[in-house]
């Protein structure tokens, strides 16, 4: 199903189109937004402002991108808090942020997911137009990497409308060339772009209550410890699992009871989440790892274990049954 575009020209009559994207560092969100900005700039009458916001400077950390487009020079510099269009590049990012926060009812939502627009609209309680695209699958097929930014870019460009397909495609490829991507990879991106265009689905839904997706008022910082170090660094307060790379989780398995009790994993884990029991002969034996909340997949245990008992295993974000009504 192809989507009805936003009608860019009427949107920009006397106002500014504002967009926001949520994802994780290393997931291609910045490239997608830079490419969208480049696409907008092909119209000489448009003023465009695009920038990212990084949290922790590491792969997997939460990241936001912003885009403003206007017929007039853009002076405002603050973050976009009431976007007309919101992109969720990575479903796992939605564990930490409400990607729909501040989007007015009737806004546009673009989600990189295998799920349908209706499933997403119900799950995230969205009112407005919802476009979905299985971008990671497209990435895996054409780019040998589960990265959905090509498809997300196409889905957002589709949602906005107003640009011929050739321009949408070529603008993205130009962004890649600017980054000196080899021609062979650019050819595969071209195929991914074409496949993405056919994979975008959309629908209009009304699942949000009036109070949904309103920004909570800032309540101040509360009592921070002197130096603000321990509480901010330790995962036990901070859900650092949200910083893990999407699509993977740490797995521990020791079917042959090979753990030597060297304790390298225990001492190297920055989050203190390796489980073990005392052992008379080996001092200790590792029994597992709590990956649910605090494992950020730093890979220290994988690197230090002499028996190779830790691995990164593929993982798909799970929704409970009641979150995905039939």
């Amino acid at each position: 199903m192809r989507s009805t575009p936003l009608d860019l020209s009427s949107l920009l009559q006397g106002s500014t189109l504002e967009m926001r994207g949520d994802g994780k560092a290393g997931g291609g969100l910045v490239l997608a937004f830079q490419s969208l900005a480049a696409l907008m700039m092909t119209d000489p009458g448009l003023h465009v402002q695009e920038w990212p916001f990084f949290s922790s400077a590491r792969r997997g950390a939460g990241i936001r991108s912003f885009l403003r487009v206007s017929r007039n020079p853009v002076a405002a510099s603050c973050e976009v808090t009431r976007p007309a269009l919101s992109l969720l590049m990575d479903e796992a990012a939605a564990r930490s942020v409400d990607f729909a926060e501040g989007v007015p009812h009737g806004g546009t939502f673009v989600i990189n997911t295998r799920r349908t627009p209706e499933q997403c609209a119900r799950h995230f309680r969205l009112t407005g137009r919802v476009l979905t695209v299985a971008g990671d699958d497209v990435g895996t097929r054409f780019l040998k990497h589960a990265i959905g930014n090509v498809s997300a870019y196409v889905a957002v460009a589709t949602a906005i409308g107003g640009f011929p397909w050739e321009q949408v495609r070529d603008s993205f490829l130009a962004s890649l060339r600017k980054r000196r991507i080899p021609e062979g990879l650019i050819a595969r991106n071209r195929e991914a772009l074409e496949a993405s265009a056919a994979a975008v689905t959309s629908g209009e839904f009304d699942f949000a209550a009036d109070a949904d997706h309103r920004a909570a008022p800032f309540e101040g910082y509360g009592a921070l410890p002197v130096g603000a170090q321990t509480a901010l660094r330790l995962s036990q307060k901070n859900r650092t699992a949200d910083y893990a790379r999407s699509g993977f989780r740490l797995r521990f398995a020791d079917p042959k009871d090979a753990c030597t009790g060297c304790a390298h994993c225990v001492t190297n884990c920055p989050e203190g989440i390796i489980r073990f029991r005392p052992d008379a002969e080996r001092v200790l034996v590792v029994t597992g790892v709590d990956v649910s909340t605090f494992c950020k997949l730093c890979g220290e245990c994988i690197a230090v274990c002499p028996e190779k008992l830790f691995v990164e295993a593929p993982y798909q974000e799970a929704w409970t049954e009641e979150e995905v009504p039939a």
Partner: peptide, 10 residues
């Protein structure tokens, strides 16, 4: 930094 160093425009 970031607000201008990483913000793209014409």
């Amino acid at each position: 930094g970031i607000k201008d160093s990483h913000r793209s425009a014409r």
